[in-house]
Every structure is written in C-alpha cells, then in structure tokens.
C-alpha cells in the first residue's frame, strides 16, 4: 500500500514545493497583501484606467485589392511586439497568390523571403495574382481557447484572444487547434505566442502597428460596437468574406474581395 501513497506523493506532494514557490510569485504579482475584491463579482484591476473593455468589440478589415505586398506590416509587427526575427515566427504575414490558367494556385509567403516582393514579372500563364495579409483572426468562437488545458489563453471582453504567459504550460495544443497557423511557440519563454491586435496600443487609443504602417490602408482596424467606426463603414461598403467559415470559428478579420483560392 505504500505504493499508493508514494504515487499520490508523486502527483501531489513533490510538485508542492514548486507549487508554493509559484504561488508566492503569483501572489506577489497580484500586489503585496492585495485584498481580495470586496465583492466576488468586482472586476480586478487590469491596469486599463478609464478604458472599458465591455464597450468595445474589435475586428479588422482587409481590402485585398489595396495590398501591395510591401511587407511593412509584418516587419512593423516584429518591431512592435518583440517577435523573434527568424522567418518561422510571425504574428502577421503576407502571402502572394498566383492563380494559373490551368486552375492551379501557387502561393508563397513574401514575409519569409522579403526579397521576393516586387519581383514577380508578367506571365502569360497567370490568370490573376494578388497579395493576402494574414494574422490571427481573433475568432469570436476560438478553438485555441477551447482546447487550452489550463485556461491560459482567453478572450477579453473587447474580443481579443490573449495568452497568459505566466500560466501557459507549453503543451502547444492551441497551436494544433488553430486552423489558420496564426500561433507559434516562443522558445525564449517556452510558451505559445500570437497576435494581440497590439492590445497595449489599442487600449491607449493607438492603432495596431500593422495598421499604422500600412501605406495603402489595406488594413482597417475598428470597433464593431461603434456604428461610426471605419470598420463598420468598411463592412457596409464591401462584400465581406472570412477564412474557413465552415469551421464556425467566427473570425473577426474580414476580407474584402476575398478570392476562393485563399485558405
């Protein structure tokens, strides 16, 4: 019977030391001697000041016909968000599609090879060709959030999917569950990472970095709660498509002039 106890020990007591240490750290992070919220329903301080998350519901519009494939968005994203520079880690990237006369679609990621941008010559075999920026779709019904075993990734009230890097155990189930390849594993922190819509910018009233630098306004950021927002106007003026609608993830990145070949 000591095996029984031993096993329980394995599972419960041995990690207890680490547990206490982590708890102490987390308690410290929560503020020294921080009193529990008076009412259990009270929102804990999120460092947002006057900003009210519940008043917003963010999304992004992408006008494919305006994208010139300059890759400034992907570069700005890496600069703004400390994304590893190697071409295997992207919060946003740009794809170039070539649909050939025989119906075959050829795709390349110009963010992986930026020297490829601005060098595609005329080709009689190409039926149509265009660029498509991609990023986390900030789904309203996100499969990555559903599968996280410890709830380390979550949707904020204003509709942004974030990762709690102090809680992420690095199992990478979320990366497997994302149909859009929008997540990557950050080896520096051993946690998953993804686009946050530049949450630190939008809560200060700035635009996400990729939207800020887009020279042709192919990216439009806005609040779906506000009828006057540019995004709502964009949705009114364009026929809209989202990526992989059949998966019922309810993406909040809306594409205008979305081609059927784009997956």
């Amino acid at each position: 019977m000591n095996k029984r106890q031993f096993l329980k020990g394995m599972i419960l007591f041995i990690p207890a030391g680490q547990l206490l240490e982590t708890l102490a750290r987390q308690a410290e992070a929560a503020g020294p001697g921080k009193p529990k919220p008076a009412k259990p329903d009270a929102e804990p301080d999120m460092g947002l000041g006057d900003y009210q998350p519940a008043d917003h519901w963010y999304g992004m519009g992408i006008e494919i016909d305006k994208c010139i494939g300059c890759n400034r968005c992907a570069e700005a994203c890496k600069a703004e968000n400390d994304v590893p520079q190697e071409p295997f880690f992207f919060r946003t990237w740009v794809e170039r599609y070539r649909v050939m006369h025989d119906g075959e679609a050829r795709v390349e990621c110009i963010s992986v090879n930026p020297q490829q941008r601005g060098e595609l010559q005329e080709d009689r075999d190409v039926l149509r060709t265009f660029f498509v920026p991609k990023l986390c779709n900030q789904c309203a019904h996100p499969p990555c959030v559903q599968v996280c075993p410890v709830g380390a990734t979550f949707s904020t009230r204003d509709g942004v999917v974030l990762i709690d890097k102090d809680r992420c155990i690095g199992c990478r189930y979320c990366i497997q569950a994302c149909p859009y390849g929008a997540r990557y594993f950050d080896h520096r922190t051993s946690t998953a990472d993804k686009c946050t819509f530049c949450y630190h910018r939008i809560t200060r009233g700035l635009l996400p970095a990729c939207v800020e630098v887009c020279p042709t306004q192919a990216r439009i950021f806005g609040d779906l709660r506000s009828k006057a927002s540019r995004l709502v106007r964009f949705q009114r003026m364009n026929k809209i498509g989202v990526l992989k609608p059949a998966l019922n993830t309810e993406p909040k990145v809306y594409y205008a002039q979305l081609d059927g070949e784009v997956r």
Binding site: P15, Q18, L19, V150, I169, C171, T189, S190
Partner: peptide, 12 residues
C-alpha cells in the same frame, strides 16, 4: 514535452 513542466500541476 511541456514547455513548462513545473506548471503541470495547473492541470489538476
């Protein structure tokens, strides 16, 4: 396999 095996107890 976990990136943070020391946090595995969170699953419990």
């Amino acid at each position: 396999h976990l990136g943070h095996p020391e946090r595995s107890f969170e699953i419990f």
